[in-house]
Simulated scan of single mutants.
Amino acid sequence: MIIDAHQHFWRLDRGDYGWLTPDLAPIHRDFGPSDLEPHLARHGIGGTVLVQAAPTLAETGYLLDLATKTAFVRGVVGWVDFEAHDAPDEIARLAAHPKLVGLRPMIQDIADDDWMLRPDLSPAFEAMIRHDLTFDALVLPRHLPRLRRLLARHPALRCVIDHGAKPEIAHGRFDDWAAQMTALAHETAVCCKLSGLLTEAGAGAGRAKVAPYAAHLFAQFGPSRLIWGSDWPVLTLATSYESWFEMARSFVSNAQDRQAVFGGTAVALYRL
């Protein structure tokens, strides 16, 4: 089964998407299952992982309700306030839902670059381990040394880096990002998503600009730790679902490797 391991739904009138402003006109509207389903059918994609887009428990509840009604949504990555004193109890409550597979604090938007290393967050990370949940690391390149320290502190925490840590492709910055990703791949068991790269490449960017970054991720993580995702509908700011799907497949030519990157690894990581 092909899995799209990173997609979003939202409804604007819910009012908790602080980042989703009218300036992002192409995606400043509602997106639901009926919008995505034709793309999945066209490419034989049998399931998705639905990922949070707002830092609220209300949105996580909304996504879990959608997942219950939508057969192709195989899992939900939600949100919990890791700073709350009752975070472990909240994680336990959410983990009881059969489609809750992971959690994602929106680290890229947090002013404190060392936030993930705060000692008072350890109970939340330990609760994730107890409930067999995956930590989606929404990080930027500057966070990667901190992520290495976090994973050394919690070696049993199952983790995946979203969007290849959003390398600054549009500015041609490669070496420091590549070194940090190599260190993470060699020193930890973290996985990585092959997603979001075209969005980071800038307007009009094509395969040539993204290819070195994708090749580095594949070389370091290999098919058993690399997971394809669309990041739809954010993807549509850069290209179409079809274009990214075909481009990503071109980065993984071996049929057995494709089975892993485009489904098998996601199934294993998220316990789908």
Rank of each mutant, 00 (worst) to 15 (best):
L138F: 14
L140N: 13
P55I: 04
L198K: 04
E200W: 01
P55Y: 09
R153G: 00
L94I: 13
R153H: 10
A208G: 10
G47I: 04
L100K: 01
E246W: 08
G46P: 07
A238Q: 08
T21M: 10
L235V: 05
R118E: 10
A179G: 09
L20C: 08
A54C: 11
V77S: 03
T134N: 06
D109E: 15
Q259K: 14
H131V: 00
H43F: 15
A185R: 03
S250P: 08
E246T: 15
Y17M: 06
E246S: 12
F72K: 05
Q259P: 01
V267A: 15
S240I: 05
W228Q: 08
Q7H: 15
P119D: 15
T236G: 06
D16C: 11
G15W: 05
A87T: 01
R42M: 09
G263Y: 07
S240M: 06
T134A: 13
A165Y: 09
Y62D: 11
L36R: 04
T60S: 14
F9N: 03
E200Q: 14
P88R: 09
V49M: 15
R104H: 02
G196H: 02
L217Q: 06
A58Q: 15
W115E: 00
F135P: 00
Q108G: 06
M116Y: 03
G202P: 02
G204R: 11
V267E: 15
G229Q: 05
A183V: 11
H6D: 11
A54M: 10
T236E: 14
T239R: 13
V160N: 01
H97Y: 11
P155N: 08
W79Q: 05
L157S: 04
G204K: 10
F9R: 01
A205M: 06
K209I: 02
L147T: 09
W177P: 09
G172M: 09
P223S: 12
H97D: 12
C192F: 03
G264Q: 11
W19K: 07
T68H: 14
A127G: 04
Q220M: 12
M106E: 00
